[in-house]
Design a protein around this nucleic acid. Sequence first.
DNA 1: CGGGGTATTGACTTTGCTCAAGAAGCGTGG
DNA 2: CCACGCTTCTTGAGCAAAGTCAATACCCCG
Lengths: 254, 254
Amino acid sequence: MDSQTAAEPLIKALRVEGSLPRDDEERLRALSFRVQTYAGDETIVAEGSQPGESCLVINGFAARVHFMEDGARQISAIHIAGDFVDLHSLHLETMDHEVSALGACEVATVPHEELLRLLDESPQLMWLFWRLTVKDAAIGRAWISALGRLAADQHLAHLVCELYQRLSAVGIADDHRFTLPATQIDLADMLGLSSVHVNRTLKLLRERGLLDWQNRQVEILRPAAVAELAQFSDDYLRLSSGERRSAFRKQANR
Amino acid sequence: MDSQTAAEPLIKALRVEGSLPRDDEERLRALSFRVQTYAGDETIVAEGSQPGESCLVINGFAARVHFMEDGARQISAIHIAGDFVDLHSLHLETMDHEVSALGACEVATVPHEELLRLLDESPQLMWLFWRLTVKDAAIGRAWISALGRLAADQHLAHLVCELYQRLSAVGIADDHRFTLPATQIDLADMLGLSSVHVNRTLKLLRERGLLDWQNRQVEILRPAAVAELAQFSDDYLRLSSGERRSAFRKQANR
DNA sequence: CGGGGTATTGACTTTGCTCAAGAAGCGTGG
DNA sequence: CCACGCTTCTTGAGCAAAGTCAATACCCCG
């Protein structure tokens, strides 16, 4: 993937969120993306750094990782292709966590300066970018309730439902199957569990005939049962009011 | 507090975030706030509703609450005076959780329509509002790592540190003391614990001479020790780059 | 002075963690 | 092509953290 096409996954993601005028689309294509490839576990943005650019995932997965004093990790978010991972670094000066690759991962970076100019030119893009961070926050809240109130098997099921839903929304997953290059250790760090317990929990779900998970390939065998176990509803992933601002604008212009 | 002064806590909070031009300040004051008072545990915004207005806390505390199928609750955020709790409902059509009062609470609501018009007029305000939601998201990430990787005593200590820091930043707390009208049940629902365990954990912290917590009054007796226990750093609460956009704008206008 | 919610404590259970060892998978270099 | 080493996966055994159930005490308010 070269710099020319790096904007496409983003444009696709933004179209899901709301109307994207053609000139804004062109503005996005005109950004000078620097595309880089990372191997699994490589650091993309370091904790404590003060990035001068924002990054978005083109291909693969990235994770936000927090480190505890004893070396324990906690992953607070997973980002997939089209996610503008690091949009918030426009607002946050110093990274309070790191962003790293979850499996091989292709990432495009854009200088903050260019983004700021872009947002200055197009309030509609600012609106859409804001929206992306709001959606991330909604996902974060779902993680909080899962961490706080779901048992290990439910939580794991919830994660699988969320990822499948998000991946299929951008056409990367289909037929209740997807690829997730995460080790059981990575999973443990997402779920706030030990890797041993993740292993046992996975085994349980397999034995119950709910999931198949081998060689980074996840298959949801009984989607309804998994969703029920996880108490999963995809409402929070469909913000679905992307048109309201533009609808308002039309109204205001009358 | 009447509608005239309802904007003040918000203006104060926005000033912390970045430069707030005088005309934007006036625009905020011109919004038609409807001020309402809620008693503890009252619902401010219902789950599943499609609010046509956003609300901000003027006084007291509000909580975002998620309900599980078995009736268990999980609180995913606490909002204090000046917090624009429900700014995200501009983007999210249907509430995936409820907002309720944590103790007596004064809230001002503004119609979405007015907010959208405001944002249309002032990209700088859109930027600042975006920034507020980014800050909330940073707090949310800290909750995720605390839920996932901190033990009960550490997590409780972390919550106390966070709240004290946020409250003192807007002048509501001082001298390592603050009022928190939360029952141990509420605390349990923030920490993802049972109320019994919260009780024992509080006892432990009291016995260790770290905290005093009586009659909704919290006092941090040994701030350094509490922060160390919690592995608390206030970095994530200080986004501290509020000026960068306006700095850029000046540059761009040259 | 009751009544309802809240706080406290004990006894017991459950969930998930730690430690440890062996098996399986995988990339690399001989 | 195989052997080696490294990481990941799997499983067992014992332990620790937190949950549940239940009884009692407290406290505020009408």
